[in-house]
Nucleic acid binder design. Structure first.
Lengths: 238, 238
DNA sequence: TAACCATTTAACCTAACGTTAACAAAAATG
DNA sequence: CATTTTTGTTAACGTTAGGTTAAATGGTTA
């Protein structure tokens, strides 16, 4: 089968290390573009469509986090792996805020990096099955405009939705009458699947249920241990 | 969320190394069963449902390759990783013949093993998404939706099934009118074949019989000492 | 700084689930 | 036909997931 190599943007200021890593990844069937600093990295990012970014944190002029933030503005889904010399907690936190997919502390085993890359790309590729560009939904007698974050019941005044409410309802709508796995919402919306994000999600399910109570045809059911299901019953009139 | 740990069968004759490795994997959220030789390894493999096998090649009585061949006869898809002291070409070839998924030469970096395991399991799990599993069944007048865990009788309100009820009924349906061996359900669903899981399964058979009582055409028969049979009689009307 | 809003965290409660025990019935064994 | 093994059924129990409300946090804006 014809398979195109995955494209990786590698931003690393140490030229020796950068070239070695680039060659290593190249030998493993990745197309690697090497940038020597954050500035150059962003330029290259804008010109090409990469599948994954590997960013050194400690770089002159523009550090990895700042670069990541800029990259995220252009593409909120691209996987980012940080290379960092320090294990400092604040750095890790900072990284997660800009949506790091993984971390590696230098020095690291190159084979480990390879497996992380493969694992992330695989995860993303299965996730993207759920990716959709649909932003408007008819849900029973409700209409959801996910771009404007409006939920309208019949001819009433639209209800304003918060970002999280909106994303969650949209994800449910994308799976209308089908299972929307907990894990999917947590990784897509909260970007982290742990006890607290899970509880947070439950809070938002409660909020959505409150909104949706207006329409008897619509309800959010739980499938224990699996996720939720947005059920839209057939209108008896039709 | 209910996430069951992956089960690994580790067959390693060096007791010290075996225990260390078992503990290390255990710390990383794997359930590891350790066997001291090929014989014991195969016994344990038959009793439980593992997700992956790690086999030492050099072992007394029964070497890793022979064991792998036996394991492959029972399950042609289970991932196998070989641990070997030598890098000899013929061994590598021999390993690939029995379908090795990966190799590690001793001594190896434990973190590398960890990433190999994760990568392999992830690959297998996405592969298995593709081999279209059947999740919907017509059972007499019942309809089973195994994805949403619903059992619907004619036009009545669907009955919610618990995960175990659902899996068990699905397994019976896959063997409709045929024997569904006890051992199969126990290893596949309970992942362990012992007295207690066996009694637990009987409890679930009772629950399913209660649900299925609505339809005279459907019943679960026991075949003493063998297993169960989901019988669907022909509808006289058709 | 105060006031506001979205989100997270905490606390507490209920429902769902699976296992186990206990006892009954049926089938196999010899 | 007495005994053992396997299966059937019910109920109690402990654990975990989910539901709900309110308070804490944190960022933004006036």
């Amino acid at each position: 089968m014809e398979t195109v190599n995955k494209k990786i943007l590698l931003v690393e200021d140490d030229p020796n290390f950068g070239v070695v890593l680039k060659d290593y990844l190249g030998m493993n069937d990745f197309d690697v573009t090497l940038a020597k600093n954050g500035m150059e990295g962003f330029e290259k990012f804008r010109k090409e469509n990469f599948d994954l970014c590997i960013l050194d944190v400690m770089m002159p002029y523009k550090d990895g986090f700042t670069l990541a933030k800029e990259i995220r503005e252009k593409d909120e889904n691209i996987p980012i792996i940080f290379l960092t010399a320090k294990t400092m907690k604040e750095d890790v936190l900072k990284g997660y805020k800009v949506g790091a997919d993984d971390y590696l502390n230098k020095p690291f085993d190159s084979e480990v990096l390879l497996f992380k890359i493969k694992a992330i790309l695989q995860r993303k590729s299965t996730e993207s099955l759920a990716d959709s560009k649909q932003f408007e939904f008819q849900i029973g007698n409700f209409h959801l405009n996910s771009k404007l974050r409006f939920l309208t019941y019949k001819e009433e005044e639209p209800i304003k939705l918060s970002p999280k409410e909106n994303e969650l309802l949209r994800l449910l709508a994308l799976h209308e009458n089908d299972l929307m796995p907990r894990e999917l919402a947590l990784t897509k919306i909260w970007r982290d699947d742990n006890y607290f994000t899970s509880r947070s999600m439950d809070v938002y399910i409660a909020k959505l249920r409150k909104y949706l109570k207006k329409d008897d045809l619509v309800e959010i059911l739980n499938i224990h241990g699996e996720g939720f299901r947005l059920v839209v019953k057939e209108d008896a009139d039709r």
